[in-house]
């Protein structure tokens, strides 16, 4: 619990504001907490309303908190969207062998909690030839000796980065929103953990920190982004951000899951660039997106490059 400082401050602030609305301001004020850092956290503005200077201050405050907590320097970036870039992702289901290298590549890059376990990517297994069942009824605990298995195919699912994200609409505190480059992000210092976004997500792509996230210090990736893989708190929601800390650079590395995939089933790039591999996939293969009837317009495209 003591590691949840910043987040508790966030909670206090919002309790306070709620209290203020009811005319009870004095009651909610934690008068014993008078240090400067507390009040800075208390009055932190919404991320999108902060100017560069304010963002820098917030980041240096958080970096200090992380350094104390993890005994290690953690660098928090705040790279802005690259103009002219709309990120898109492709997944070739005719190649995927269900090996879960992507799942663990993601965990390591994005500082997911190991115990309690959080995975941003879930790999689903379906029997070939059968009508596809809904995502909820597929098998995700499969564990054969070797993959692929003759009679199955596999479908990894993670945040689909919807153009029209229902999770964003569901959030009562605007702690989650869609950036101009299409990435749906979460501000862990604004999230109040109500989990409405999780209920709203048709893809089951959001994860909740029921307990304090737990990851050995030596395994923490110190290269982070404020809206991405920086350490999270108990009681906040998290999910895939297309590796915002890597991909929002020019030049920027491919997402960790793309790198981890041994069969090259994962494709990533700029939807606005006609020469990108994702555009090649969309123009040359019959792509589809999950639950298209919901009009969420994911920027995550599935396809079968080769007939099955």
């Amino acid at each position: 619990m003591e590691q949840d400082e910043s987040r508790q401050r966030g909670m206090h602030r919002r309790d306070f504001l709620r209290g203020a609305a009811l005319g009870l301001a004095g009651l909610a004020l934690p008068l014993d907490r008078a240090d400067a850092s507390f009040w800075e956290a208390f009055f932190q503005k919404h991320f999108r309303e902060m100017n560069d200077e304010e963002i820098k201050q917030v980041i240096s405050r958080l970096e200090k908190e992380y350094a104390q907590k993890f005994k290690k320097q953690i660098e928090i970036g705040a790279d802005k969207p690259i103009p002219g870039v709309l990120y898109g992702y492709g997944l070739d289901l005719s190649r995927c062998i269900g090996c879960r290298r992507c799942v663990y590549g993601c965990v390591a890059e994005n500082n997911q909690s190991i115990d309690p376990q959080i995975h941003w990517i879930t790999v689903l297994r379906f029997r070939k030839g059968e009508k596809w069942v809904d995502l909820e009824n597929s098998e995700k605990y499969y564990s054969p000796e070797k993959v692929p298995e003759e009679e199955y195919f596999y479908m990894p699912v993670q945040c689909q980065q919807c153009e029209n994200p229902p999770c964003v609409r569901a959030c009562p505190t605007q702690a989650t929103w869609k950036e101009p480059d299409g990435i749906v992000v979460i501000d862990y210092n604004w999230c109040i953990g109500c989990r409405y976004c999780m209920a709203a997500c048709p893809y089951g792509a959001r994860r909740f920190n029921w307990g304090a996230p737990n990851r050995p210090e030596e395994k923490i990736n110190p290269k982070t982004h404020y809206l991405g893989n920086r350490p999270r708190y108990r009681g906040v929601v998290e999910k895939c951000t297309f590796c915002i800390q890597r991909t929002r650079k020019d030049p920027g590395r491919y997402p960790a899951c793309v790198e981890a995939c041994p069969v090259g089933a994962r494709k990533f790039g700029n939807l606005l660039d006609p020469n990108s591999e994702i555009r090649y996939a969309i123009e040359h293969k019959r792509v589809f997106r999950l639950k298209e009837d919901l009009n969420t317009s994911p920027k995550f495209y599935y396809f079968f490059a080769y007939g099955r």
């Binding site: 870039v85 070739d92 020019d250 030049p251 491919y254 494709k267 591999e277 040359h284 293969k285 490059a305």
Partner: peptide, 13 residues
């Protein structure tokens, strides 16, 4: 075109 097999490095470089 980057579709079959795998490219590593920079997605925009």
């Amino acid at each position: 075109a980057g579709l079959h097999g795998k490219r590593t490095g920079m997605w925009n470089g």
